[in-house]
């Protein structure tokens, strides 16, 4: 140790803070340390995406194909039986992956587009724009979003477009708050001030200085918001004011087959039928939550061991 100071040179100064690893190595190291819950989550998400993409190939029957026997029991012909007007449950489950999940993804993406860009703009601008948007968001968030959604749906009617727009706008308030908060942490950094001193334009500062640094929390938030949106849409559909028939959707499927549950004491399988779509919703949300939990733990460097 003591032989160093004599031959001091800047190049040789040790950067002991982190070992240099390539991106691939880092991903590998991260994955190898991933807990089983995260692995479980990633596999489930992959399966859902697979189902959504190849729904027509996987489903034995059509999405709205009606057979003569309503409430048919589980059999080799109809693996999970048929619903109240004689549609194959399994096929509708598979199509539901496509409909329910893609509507939720589209809504979340729209919410991020609105909330993210406004939040970023507010954080940089910090003047009347920030004041205006922040107060507006305060008011919008003063009403529980499910209640607000119900009010708006009663006015505009329940179509898929309305549903996506309404939920996206309501949910963008939370994205706005988060984006604004994390951007504010970055905006006060000296490197942003340095860019402003250099004379860089607003667009450059947003794209090059701030965005790359707020991505990790936003990605995690995307997962969480997806869960929230997904559950909200499922709840609305379950209440009968969300996605409308004949579109196959898990929330409405629960509602349509709910009465079967009381038959569980006579035929357990029939009783389970309404729980299948509900379980499909639950499983995906659990999976996303597991992955986000791990991701947050990893990127925040949070170690709360005592």
């Amino acid at each position: 140790m003591s032989n160093k100071p004599n031959t001091y040179s800047a190049v040789a100064e040790v950067a002991y803070k982190r070992v240099r690893r390539s991106r691939l190595q880092r991903v590998k190291l991260g994955l190898s340390k991933a807990p089983p819950t995260a692995w479980f989550g990633m596999i489930v998400i992959f399966l859902y995406i697979f189902c959504a993409l190849f729904a027509p190939l996987l489903a034995p029957y059509g999405e709205a194909e009606i057979f003569p026997e309503p409430f048919a029991p589980w059999s080799s012909e109809f693996i999970f039986g048929t619903d109240q007007i004689g549609r194959d449950i399994l096929s509708r489950m598979i199509y539901g992956a496509r409909n329910t999940v893609s509507i939720a993804v589209a809504t979340t993406a729209l919410a991020f587009l609105i909330g993210g860009s406004l939040g970023l703009a507010a954080a940089i601008n910090m003047s009347w724009l920030d004041q205006f948007l922040s107060r507006l968001v305060d008011v919008l968030m003063a009403i529980p979003s499910l209640i607000f959604a119900l009010v708006l749906l009663s006015i505009f009617g329940s179509t898929v477009t309305n549903l996506i727009l309404i939920i996206a706008v309501l949910d963008s308030t939370r994205v706005f708050r988060l984006t604004r908060a994390v951007s504010l942490n970055v905006v006060v950094m000296d490197y942003v001030e340095a860019a402003r001193l250099r004379g860089e334009g607003l667009g450059w500062i947003m794209r090059r200085e701030i965005l790359p640094n707020i991505l990790p929390p936003l990605i995690a938030e995307f997962g969480l918001r997806f869960c929230f949106v997904f559950l909200t849409i499922a709840a609305l559909s379950f209440l009968g004011v969300g996605i409308q028939p004949p579109t196959a959707d898990w929330g409405s499927m629960v509602r349509e087959n709910a009465s079967l549950i009381m038959f569980a004491q006579y035929d357990l399988k029939a009783g389970l039928t309404p729980l299948l779509p509900a379980a499909a919703i639950a499983l995906l949300t659990v999976a996303v939550n597991f992955v986000v939990d791990w991701f947050l733990h990893k990127t925040s460097g949070l170690r709360d061991e005592q």
Partner: peptide, 18 residues
């Protein structure tokens, strides 16, 4: 702007980590 440049106390926060 070019003629007057600035160097900060905390080099950590003065450079974009990305």
């Amino acid at each position: 702007k070019r003629q007057i440049q600035m160097i900060y106390q905390m080099a950590d926060t003065a450079m974009n980590p990305k």
